[in-house]
Design a protein around this nucleic acid. Structure first.
Lengths: 229, 229
DNA sequence: GCCCGTACATGACACTGTTATGCATAACAC
DNA sequence: GTGTTATGCATAACAGTGTCATGTACGGGC
């Protein structure tokens, strides 16, 4: 690593780099924004540490984003693979929503301007972001293999599914559903249901899978709440 | 209007208020951001005009947003009502995408933090934003009435559809599709197709409607390009 | 013609990211 | 152990942001 400058950092605190990223992630989660000065105050340092270690706030944000994608992917892949592929796919997307609601600001960094990872072309960032998408494609493939869906272009189907859950997530973050007195769980279920049927599944089978996935999601929510306590 | 302060503005330039909004909208479209100082420089005034007329940048942004919803709604409702309700619905959503791509920053203000219109509860803002959603619901209703779709809860279906097109739009704005070499028209078509089938339509009928809507959209794109020239 | 009030300009305050400068200290050569 | 080098970090400044207190000049009501 860092073969360009060729000089290993010889900091007094060898963990400072990690601490900066940790603190930035924590401030992002708790306060929604992270400024160089706020970060320095929290660390007991000057703002310069951001520039010696990352060159600027942009690169630091990308590091936080990269870690976010790591956590996100790990959490998404925790869902088991059962004989109900559509339920597994739905479980995956309920986990997607749970993460996005628990970490709204991190999600915004990851999927807002953070998707610049794709533009900037840093292989590590691109891979981090793409891995979660590939993970989604695997679930879709399983539904096709199970004979539930008829899809020739899995990637395009994945983009359509992702658009739906991502859009719903961002709408939920703006507070839309709460403001108009609508139930976001209901509309999220609608997305999953209509998409599954649209991709070829039987209506009744989709409804059964949704029930299964909802039960799993509620249980995961409880686990989440318990670990937070 | 402005019955709270009760004092009519007696500016040297009675159109200044309008000019500020116009200029802010133009700067937003051309430069992506609009700061009080940049605005003042463009207008040949000081930054104070923003505060005497709007009380701050927030309210000015909301005015720009409100106008944006007006233009957006007018453009969306331009689509004709024909005997192919699903094609009309798709045409509506192609117009949605066309507007979002032509005015990415305005769209971001409108549907990003701008959806705070729903939170803040200003009736005019809420109505401006809601009218475009209601317009979508009308198209959905037409599909149900035409016997193409079987939907009991039109609002929930509308939220699902909106999530899909909104999500796709924001992903497209981040440059995702271009960066990974994917065709956004293809995935957008996939959303429309799978949603229509998922909502109850026949696969072949949906495909025919998609062709119709695509033809209309291409024609509208050409008109758009011609008027821009 | 006077006076009041409003619209606007000026300049300052607190904040942001960034960077030039300087210093203390750690690592290395001998 | 000493001298040299260079690195990490603090200090302070610059340019930018939104905002506001103050002062001024002008327009309408009397």
């Amino acid at each position: 690593m860092d073969t360009l400058s060729g000089v290993p950092p010889r900091s007094a605190d060898p963990h400072l780099r990690e601490r900066i990223i940790n603190t930035a992630a924590r401030l992002l989660a708790t306060e929604g924004v992270v400024s160089a000065r706020r970060l320095a105050r929290e660390l007991g340092t000057s703002t310069m540490v951001v520039y010696t270690h990352f060159g600027g706030m942009d690169e630091l944000s990308r590091q936080v984003m990269r870690r976010g994608f790591g956590d996100f992917g790990a959490e998404l892949d925790r869902g088991a693979v059962t004989d109900d592929a559509v339920a597994d796919w739905m479980t995956y997307l309920w986990s997607y929503r749970r993460f996005a609601l628990r970490e709204p600001h991190l999600y915004a960094v990851m999927f807002g301007p953070g998707l610049a990872a794709f533009r900037l072309g840093d292989p590590a960032d691109l891979e981090a972001a793409r891995s979660t998408f590939v993970s989604l494609l695997r679930r879709i493939h399983a539904c096709v293999n199970a004979g539930r869906w008829g899809v020739d272009d899995v990637t395009t189907a994945g983009e359509a599914v992702w658009s739906g859950v991502h859009g719903h997530t961002t709408l939920e973050h703006t507070g839309f559903f709460g403001a108009v007195g609508r139930d976001p769980v209901r509309s999220y279920s609608e997305i999953l249901t209509r998409m599954s049927i649209g991709l070829g599944d039987d209506g009744l089978a989709t409804a059964r899978s949704l029930s299964t996935a909802r039960r799993r999601a509620v249980r995961a929510d409880r686990t989440d709440a318990a670990s937070a306590r």
